[in-house]
Write a protein that binds this DNA or RNA. Structure first.
Lengths: 214, 214
DNA sequence: AGACTGTGTTACCGCAAGTAACATGCATGT
DNA sequence: ACATGCATGTTACTTGCGGTAACACAGTCT
């Protein structure tokens, strides 16, 4: 048996799996994360047990679905992070890439950030609590790696890079979530404000007259 | 009718509501956010319909529960934020207060950050997606207000303060979530690393030899 | 032909959210 | 004293989901 050569059946199964994922994608994007397995099966033109044979349980399906989108988003973020420009420009490009993505496809974003749904007690599929939002964790780790590779942070730099990776990703996420809901300013302004924050403007700002500084 | 004077019945109902919330608290802290209404009712020594009369639906109960803990946490954060010290010390004290809280009561933390559970299709109670994590939003707004009151940020300062408020809260949250799961370092180190990030060390760091800067 | 495997179905279980419909203690108005 | 209301409590039910068992039908290999 050649392990690299895939049999026809394997390829057929993979193709089917992709079709099912695309159907699930349509339903989840239409109905939100509480889309039922029945609805997904109907969209795919089949019935429930097939979904369960392919993905185990709802958590498995959602994890597979999330993986696709997460991979796609991470690819575009990596591209922005690796662009030939100086540090500030890269940071702004990365922020802008992320914000553009969530702005263009808010439904995908909602699904990725709040995948913990349908939590029956028997639902051992997703394990909420251990990895709240896999996307955030993965982005944090990737950013940490880039920071650690590119910046000279002295002793303890690796750990510092990880803290910063997760912290910056969290900053981007929370600000983006809030911005997406309220739209208080343009995307460019948001990018600039966040980059300013990362560039130490918080520490550099002067106190307001009449009181102690923050 | 005096609107400020509460009748005996009102006071009794309020007391009962508090008792129910405390029972719910015990169950949620024991079983996680997927605790069933039946289990909560049993813990309180009553049956389901009473819970529904008091809180409408599961979302209402969880919202009330979250409000209690959120208020408590926000109070302690405000205290740290208002301490008589310089800016850096206050930032570190606030970070430390938050991290201590989530470290001491991780179950409460999990509940507050991932309240969207048991999402049946009929569950119109919580409206996931509109307000993902009420705690984060409230912390962001409060911090924004403090920043705007205390710092002189020039024109557009109010908007900048809101972006920063939500961004900093998100940074704290994501880093805390990651730290709570992996415990890669002590709390003090984490606080210091995050404060360093806010103080612009990212921009000030030198490039690594052999490649362009991040 | 007959066994095996992948794909599909119907019909069902268990369980949780949420809802009548009915019972009961207790204060009040006449 | 007695009926009226009202809050508080119950049992029993419906609905709808996740998940599974059991069965049915194609193609393929020996």
């Amino acid at each position: 048996m050649d392990t690299t050569q895939r049999t026809d059946q394997q390829r057929s199964a993979d193709r089917r799996r992709r079709e099912l994922l695309e159907a699930a994608d349509r339903v989840v994007l239409r109905d939100g994360p509480q889309a039922s397995m029945n609805a997904i099966a109907a969209e795919a033109g089949i019935t429930k047990p097939i979904l369960y044979r392919h993905f185990g349980d709802k958590g498995g399906l959602y994890a597979a679905l999330a993986m696709r989108h997460t991979d796609a988003l991470l690819d575009s973020l990596r591209a922005a992070l690796d662009a030939p420009a100086d540090r500030r420009e890269r940071v702004e490009a990365t922020l802008d890439t992320y914000l553009t993505a969530i702005e263009l496809r808010p439904q995908v974003y909602r699904f990725l950030m709040h995948p913990a749904e349908g939590g029956q007690p028997g639902d051992q599929g997703f394990d909420v609590g251990k990895h709240s939002a896999p996307l955030l964790r993965r982005m944090g780790e990737e950013l940490a790696q880039v920071i650690e590779e590119r910046l000279d942070l002295g002793p303890g730099g690796q750990q510092l890079a990880r803290v910063w990776g997760h912290g910056i990703v969290g900053m981007m996420h929370a600000a983006g979530d809030w911005w997406l809901g309220e739209r208080p300013c343009s995307r460019a302004e948001l990018v600039r404000s966040l980059a300013d924050l990362l560039w130490g403007r918080l520490a550099a700002a002067g106190d307001r007259v009449g009181g102690p500084g923050f």
